[in-house]
Write a protein that binds this DNA or RNA. Structure first.
Length: 588
RNA sequence: ACACUCGUAGCUCAGUGGAUAGAGCACUGGCCUCCGGAGCCAGGUGCGUGGGUUCGAUUCCCAUCGAGUGUACCA
């Protein structure tokens, strides 16, 4: 379905043309004075200079043209030159009614479907997921869903950190802890064991210990770097250990992402790109892009227009090892071969922006990625605690994601037990669903690029602009619909009648914005637009609910219209939360 | 030092080249013969500061102050 603003703009364009003005001036926007009108057009004021006429006169001429247009109830020219429009209630009701009949609720897929690789999640093997991974997962997941809904073919890749220094650190630490393992016996010639010599719990303990030690102990760090290099060069015992680390870790990661309802199509990692590196490097050398600088092999990516110094992109360290940028570049080669995407989108902490600037420029410069493939970095801000500083546990450590999720579910659970008599079991079950909405909505309702304050109390509240409040609204509608279909012989939705009071009209107006909002969220990659929309929609619904007796309505036609209206509201809310990555329970 | 981002209500956040800058929380008062009161209604304060462009700037530009982040072998 055409967006309602587009429909109205077309009418205005006709009117502007007839009056002899440029139709580009005819853009209709939502009214910022809902007390005066539903929609407005400010084009007459912009036209005033161009046509050397008073804006109010232009507005008046255009308004006069529109007096008989069936899309409008009224069109007025108001000083200094606003064109204020009230929408025809018949048109509004039929528009919203048509939305309800459409299985995409009036949202058309965009014309040019793109093939998109999305790189988010960014979990590191052998390290537990912590709050730092939360945003990438949550935002990436919703962007994936939004892009897919809008018609893109999206391939989501978790892109594990499975190849960096942390692997060397773990190997060296393991050697200190258990020097007798066969992996460290240089004379050992046999097969390496099938099973890992550690559990996930042990693994998760090893890394932070090794990492801390490497900061204190220079020799230890050097050995870790050496081990990393050996691993990268294919030294069999380290390869065997590395496989164990991966195997143990991925099982655990999958479980965690599943709890977050975050799904990936690909579980590739940095290691998968390694095979592409030798050719990539020799190609870069051949073409003259790669040169030695301070002992490292680099590609210069500085440009004359830069306002700041952009350091060269390091492809190979002075010790011969490769790094993050190298495998990201190699991954680009891999992705191009595997998918030939139109766009590659990275979700990562905005502090990594420089890295992506370097990689993107190096990729363009060396011809790894052509002009027709768009490279996009969507940086997100830090999750802070109530003190405004990066979120930490009480004792100052990094909080594990599992712990965080547990805490928010617990907060929701306690609220449910206070307010409603449900069984503990049901409350547990439902609190997981509601807790997830609290977590995701709390994050997504903020602009992704900004830092935000994470506040369990606030996010898990059932009041205000929160996930649980949205879910509550849906559950409430479900409850009414269930009652209606229990006591009524009617099983089908009816026709929407024109709104009989303001709150009903408000609800319809809000519903009619859906396709506009989804498109904006898609174009701007801005999930918070959807959050703002459904919050307002929930408010509109509650306003309508408050002054309409739905089940008590005696006029059958009217009642059926109400039922249809709230049913459309439910569908819209459900679509939106599905895009945001959570769903509503039956009761709460 | 340089660069980038951000300064909106007591707090957490939206928003826009246009009319009276919005929500939530918190605070105060109403509203249950009512489909879920986890609701509805009413009540106060704000665009860091100074310039500029514009008919019109909170929005665009410049300066200034403040905060955050980044500046080659970590990811």
């Amino acid at each position: 379905m055409k967006k309602i603003l587009a429909v109205l703009t077309e009418e205005l364009e006709k009117a502007f043309c007839v009056c002899g003005y440029d139709e580009k001036l005819a853009k209709v926007t939502l009214s910022n004075r809902p007390d005066l009108c539903d929609y407005q057009c400010n084009g007459a004021m912009a036209a005033a200079k161009q046509y050397k006429k008073a804006p109010i006169q232009i507005a008046g001429e255009v308004a006069a043209q529109l007096q008989n247009c069936d899309k409008f109830q009224s069109v007025q020219a108001v000083n200094p030159g606003f064109i204020n429009m009230k929408i025809s209630e018949e048109f509004l009701a039929s528009y919203v009614g048509d939305m309800g009949k459409d299985d995409r609720l009036g949202c058309e897929p965009c014309e040019s479907s793109r093939k998109v690789v999305m790189d988010y999640g960014g979990a590191n093997v052998a390290k537990p997921l912590h709050v730092g991974h939360l945003r990438s997962a949550i935002i990436g997941e919703t962007l994936k869903r939004i892009c897919r809904f809008c018609g893109d073919e999206v391939i989501a890749d978790v892109h594990l950190g499975d190849w960096g220094l942390q692997m060397g650190l773990i190997i060296v630490q393991l050697q200190e802890d258990q020097p007798d393992l066969v992996y460290f016996d240089t004379d050992y010639k046999g097969e390496y064991p099938q099973d890992a010599p550690f559990t996930i719990t042990e693994l998760e303990e090893i890394y932070p210990r090794a990492s801390a030690k490497s900061k204190q102990d220079g020799a230890f760090k050097e050995r870790a770097q050496q081990a990393t290099l050996q691993l990268q060069q294919g030294y069999p015992p380290y390869r065997a250990l590395w496989k164990h680390i991966l195997q143990v870790s991925i099982v655990d990661l999958k479980k965690n992402y599943e709890n977050l309802q975050v799904e990936f199509d690909l579980w590739k990692g940095e290691s998968d790109a390694q095979d592409y590196i030798p050719d990539m490097i020799s190609d870069m050398k051949e073409k003259g892009f790669l040169h030695e600088s301070q002992g490292a092999m680099v590609v210069d990516v500085a440009q004359e227009t830069d306002t700041k110094e952009i350091p060269p992109c390091i492809i190979q360290k002075s010790d011969g090892a490769v790094l993050y940028a190298t495998s990201d570049l190699a991954t680009l080669i891999q992705r191009k071969q595997d998918f030939a995407p139109d766009r590659i989108l990275y979700m990562a902490d905005k502090r990594q922006e420089m890295h992506f600037v370097q990689v993107f420029r190096a990729a363009r410069k060396t011809g790894i990625v052509e002009e027709n493939t768009q490279l996009l970095f969507k940086g997100f801000g830090t999750m802070n605690g109530k003190d405004g500083k990066p979120f930490k546990t009480r004792d100052g450590g990094v909080m594990r994601l599992e712990t965080l999720i547990g805490e928010i579910n617990q907060a929701v659970y306690e609220k449910m037990m206070e307010n409603r008599s449900v069984s503990q079991e049901e409350a547990r079950e439902v609190s997981r669903i509601v807790g997830l909405s609290a977590l995701k909505y709390g994050d997504l309702s903020n602009q992704a690029s900004k830092d935000y304050v994470f506040d369990i109390e606030r996010f898990s509240s059932f009041e205000g602009n929160t996930g649980p409040y949205i879910l509550y609204t849906i559950v409430r509608i479900k409850s009414i619909l269930t009652k209606y279909y229990q006591q009524s012989s009617e099983q089908e939705e009816g026709v929407l009648l024109v709104p009989s009071h303001q709150s009903e009209k408000n609800l319809m107006l809000q519903l009619s914005k859906l396709n506009e909002v989804i498109e904006t969220a898609y174009e701007e990659l801005a999930p918070h637009r959807i959050c703002a929309y459904i919050y307002e929609l929930s408010d509109c619904f509650n306003g309508f609910y408050h002054d309409t007796k739905i089940l008590g309505e005696e006029d059958q036609q009217k009642q059926k219209s109400y039922i249809t209206l709230i049913s459309i509201t439910k569908k819209v809310l459900e679509l939106c939360i599905e895009l945001l990555g959570f769903q509503a329970p039956e009761r709460m």
